[in-house]
Design a binder for these strands. Sequence first.
DNA 1: ATAAACATTGCAAACGTTTGCATTTATCTC
DNA 2: GAGATAAATGCAAACGTTTGCAATGTTTAT
Lengths: 335, 335
Amino acid sequence: MNNKKIKLADLAKLAGVSTSTVSRALNNNPLIKQETRDKLQQLAKKHNFSLNTAASRLRTQKTNVVAVIINLDEQTEQSIGDPFLLKVVSEINLALNQQGLELLLSNSIMAQGDWANYFINGRRADGIIVVGQGKNQTNIEAAADAGIPLVVWGDPKTQSNYPIVGSDNYLGGLQASTHLIEHGAKNILFLGDPEHGEISERHRGYAAALATHKLEQHVISIDITSRSAYQAINQLLREKGLYFDAIMACSDMVALGAMKALKERYVSIPNDVALVGFDDIAMADISHPSLSTIKQNTQFAATLLVKKLIQQFSGEKVESQVIDIELITRQSSKR
Amino acid sequence: MNNKKIKLADLAKLAGVSTSTVSRALNNNPLIKQETRDKLQQLAKKHNFSLNTAASRLRTQKTNVVAVIINLDEQTEQSIGDPFLLKVVSEINLALNQQGLELLLSNSIMAQGDWANYFINGRRADGIIVVGQGKNQTNIEAAADAGIPLVVWGDPKTQSNYPIVGSDNYLGGLQASTHLIEHGAKNILFLGDPEHGEISERHRGYAAALATHKLEQHVISIDITSRSAYQAINQLLREKGLYFDAIMACSDMVALGAMKALKERYVSIPNDVALVGFDDIAMADISHPSLSTIKQNTQFAATLLVKKLIQQFSGEKVESQVIDIELITRQSSKR
DNA sequence: ATAAACATTGCAAACGTTTGCATTTATCTC
DNA sequence: GAGATAAATGCAAACGTTTGCAATGTTTAT
């Protein structure tokens, strides 16, 4: 085993050519004769050669790395372990890899405040994908103002100076609520945090559906975790009884937390209370009863995020884009 | 807004000193007078200066980056979206950040085969954390043979030439199975893939518990996903009826898939069939009935993985380490 | 006052690529 | 076969840090 790290110059010496030739050959530069290219590429493979990316990045000013920032509010408990967010991240990872880009994973802890300088001027990455708008967009706005390649997973209808890719949260909220109403619901709880970026749009959809049918809103503002949903529903049933017949939850995790509380008190789902979630995480299909939900097409979203980021690398201006959602009706809402 | 990227030399000119002085000052080198250090650090902050990491890495041969490889078999469906694995990754992310290290996320797609060369010689990272042993350890062994800093999340009792941190899977399997037996189970299914690294140990524990109580093994070998668990239990009930009274599942996701199949056929949990999972993901607590399980202390594991990796940076040899597991008894197994 | 020790800063080389330009070698034209 | 064009390769500078060593300024000991 050759424990000495091999570099371009070593290959060059072995092949009896200059380092420039090796460099160009490995980059498949047509300046180099095909025959020479093949020979050098094989030589490189044979010696398990791997470019020193530090040197390469210094010279080219390109990293081929994208920073992905999971953007969570400090206040809320919605943890970095949230299954939906992590699913989005892993889809992004796949989409980046397919473009030959690598993924530097960050959270708000590491990148304090000035993302543009830290990531871009610090040559850690060529661009940034922010996952989640959170309640506070100042960090994102500052980065966008600095003119760096940036794209955000969030609510695309938000007014912004940066491109946002995300589901049609308004339509999702509208469809979910309308679906419940069509199945006879009269008193529908909205369970979530209407202050939060994406979720406020879902709430708007909910409100619109209820207005159309002249129903009254019941907004229960909670942290967007299954635990607080569980606690909230428990408390509600204890203090005010079963005064509602449906719940539109702002996420599947929230819905599942609510479901547990209902089942524990023998409230029948969907007969006594119908339930719709949002996201379509794996558990929605596995829960019992299975959970109706608004499916977010994360895979498509991920490829789109990456595509829009790459477009910015070449100076293009890109716009926000809305992704279709889909109502998945399962057992929890059918009656 | 200053759109020109600022570098060390610019700061030096501004302050009327040499670049060496600035470099040392920003690294808090005691060679530089405290007063000068303070002044330069403030100047850097004022100009939002961020070191060009490419140059720095080239010069120092250090990246302060750790590659995290999610190690999945191509054959299995256990997806990169697996909630438990992602939870581990996010814990590792936190632990790394606390040490000032960054996390480069990779999967087996990007890093084809030769990890040592790709990541270490390619100066992408200083070390590697592999999440999951998978069925095939040749990649890991090759990297370990190359003598690079490496640590693996897996089953620590596996014979290996690299350090492994992980739960006591054997004991977990033993405790889970014993727990079921103590609650009266006579025919316990093992649901999982006994070929798979960590899971084979869980199976060994299961086998030992059954042997002690002179019970017969029933191993159902499946892909470790909730979907195949669901299908397997469905098929079993259809073809052979309810010939078992308990299930030890190799993971919570598998347990939840099984739970759904049972509930759909009105098999009572835990009365007809008691159920224990493994991992303690968030859903275990939220499912109904809540799922008894073996809790893996991922947070502690993550800090330990990082600690052992850092020790290798300074040349220390480190050993594998077993992490305590804990039986969490919830509704699914109490009767 | 002088030499020696110390504290502080600057000089310049090095890290390993990439690339504009110069140079060599091969091919073509008449 | 000579001159001109095209193809292939090499030279050397540059990317922005860090760091061994030299150089300067300051203090201490004699």
